[in-house]
Simulated assay, not measured.
Amino acid sequence: MRVVIALDSFKGSIGAAAACAALAQGWLAERPADEVLLRPMADGGEGTLDAVAAALPEARRMPVTVTGPAGRPVEASWLLLPDGTGVVELASTSGIELLAGELRPWDASTRGFGEAIAAALDGGARRLVLGIGSSASTDGGVGVLSALGLRFFGADGAPIPDGGRGLPEIVRTDAGSLRLPPSGGVTVLTDVRNPLLGPTGAAAVYGPQKGVRDVARAEAGLARVAEEAPQIDPSTPGAGAAGGTGFALLAWGARLVPGADEVAALVGLDASIAEASLVITGEGSFDPQSSAGKVPGFVREAAERAGIPAAIVAGRITGDADVSGFAAALSLSELAGSPAASLADPTRWLRAAGARLAAYRTQDE
C-alpha cells in the first residue's frame, strides 16, 4: 500500500511535521512493507513554514531577527524555495503564541511580519507566499506596511505608535518610501473569509480573542485604515484576516487565497494522492468548521476527487462534526482516555492512532 499522511498541526500540542512522523511510525510498526508519504499541511497559520520545509527539503531557511508583537526581538526565519519563492509566516513573527498568554490588545503589532517580508525581498525572493493565521494584533496591518516603508501620521505630525491604539488618529499617510511587491506577485494564505468591518469583521469576531474589550474603538481604527485605501473594498472576503492584515496586503497589491489550497500546491499533495491507497488527515479539533477552508475538509475533497478513501485523526472530534465522508475517524482523546492525557503526550497517541488505522486496514484486506 501507499499511504499519504497529510495532517495539520495539533495547535498548542504538536506541529504538523512531527504529527505526521508520529502517525507514520505507528502505521509502519503494524505494516512495515507499506510506502508512507508525509505531506504535512497548513492553512496559513502556525506551522505553515514547517509544513512546506518538511515537504521540500531543498528549500532553505533564512534566519531573521524581527520586532515581536510585544516590541521585543524575536528570532524567526523565512523560507526560500528553489524557484525563488519566499515563504513568510505571520505566526512566527507576529503571532499570538509569542505573547505567552500576555495579551496586548492595543499595542501588539504586525511590524515583525513586515520586517520578515522586507528581509525576503532583500534576500532575492521573486515571489512571496505569506501565511497570515494566528495573529496577536488588531492593527489593520499598519505594522506590516510601516515596516515596508509606508508612513502613518497623526494630527500632531508625528508617526502613530505601533498597534491598534493610534489607528483612529491617522490623518495622513506617505507612500514615498513604500517598497513594491516582487515581480512574481504576492499570494496571501488565509483560512478565514471575514470582511474588515462590521459584525463579522476583524474587531467584532477576533478582537475579544486578543483581549480587545472596546470593540467600537477597534472598529473605528480599522474603518480609518480603510479610508486610506479607498480602492480596496473592505467587505472583500478575508480582508479581516489577522486583525485586518488581509486588507493591508490587498492594498499592497496581494491576492488572498484559501491557505490549504496553496500549501497543497507547494507540497505536491494532488500528485502524492493520485497513486495512494489511503489518505490520512487531521488536526487538533475536528468540528463543523473543519469542512470549510480547514485542512481536513480540503484533504478529504482532494481524496474524493482522486477516488481514494480518507481517514481522519484529531485530538478531539466534537459531537456535531460531520465524519460521514471518512472511511475511519479516530480521536486521540478517546484513545488516551481523556483530552488531558492526549495533550500530555500527543506523540504517543498519534503513534497509537497510526497503529490502530493500520490494523483496521489489515482486517479489511
Rank of each mutant, 00 (worst) to 15 (best):
R2I: 03
I5C: 08
L7A: 01
D8E: 11
F10D: 06
K11S: 03
S13M: 06
G15M: 05
G15D: 09
A16L: 00
A16V: 06
A18K: 14
A18F: 07
A21L: 09
A22S: 14
A22V: 10
E30W: 02
R31A: 15
R31D: 12
E35N: 10
R39V: 15
M41H: 00
G44L: 00
A51N: 03
A54D: 13
E58A: 15
P63H: 04
V64I: 12
V64K: 11
T65C: 11
G68Q: 08
P69C: 03
R72A: 15
P73E: 12
G84S: 10
V88I: 13
A91N: 03
E97H: 15
L99S: 05
G101I: 06
A108S: 14
E115W: 05
E115S: 01
A120F: 07
A120K: 10
D122R: 14
L130R: 06
I132D: 09
S135A: 15
S135C: 13
D139K: 01
G143F: 03
V144I: 15
G149A: 04
F152N: 01
G154A: 02
A155Y: 10
I160Q: 05
I160H: 01
G163V: 01
R165W: 09
G166Q: 11
A175E: 06
G185M: 07
D191N: 02
V192L: 10
V192T: 08
R193E: 12
N194V: 11
P199T: 09
G201S: 11
Y206W: 10
G211M: 10
G211S: 07
G211Q: 09
V215Y: 02
R217Q: 14
E219S: 15
L222G: 02
L222H: 08
R224D: 07
E228I: 00
D233I: 10
T236G: 09
P237H: 02
P237K: 05
G246S: 04
A248V: 08
G253D: 11
G253C: 05
R255I: 12
V257C: 03
A265N: 14
V267I: 15
V267A: 04
G268F: 09
A271R: 12
L278G: 00
V279S: 07
T281R: 00
G282K: 02
G284F: 09
S285D: 04
D287K: 09
S290G: 10
A292Y: 15
V295R: 00
G297W: 03
F298C: 03
R300W: 09
A303E: 07
A306K: 02
G307W: 12
P309H: 08
A311G: 14
V313Y: 03
A314M: 07
D320C: 03
A321W: 01
A321D: 08
D322V: 09
V323Q: 05
S324I: 05
G325R: 06
A328R: 13
A329V: 03
L332N: 13
A336Y: 01
P339M: 04
A341G: 05
A341P: 01
S342P: 00
L350C: 04
L350G: 08
A352N: 12
A353H: 04
A353C: 13
G354L: 01
A358F: 02
A359Q: 14
E365H: 12
E365T: 14
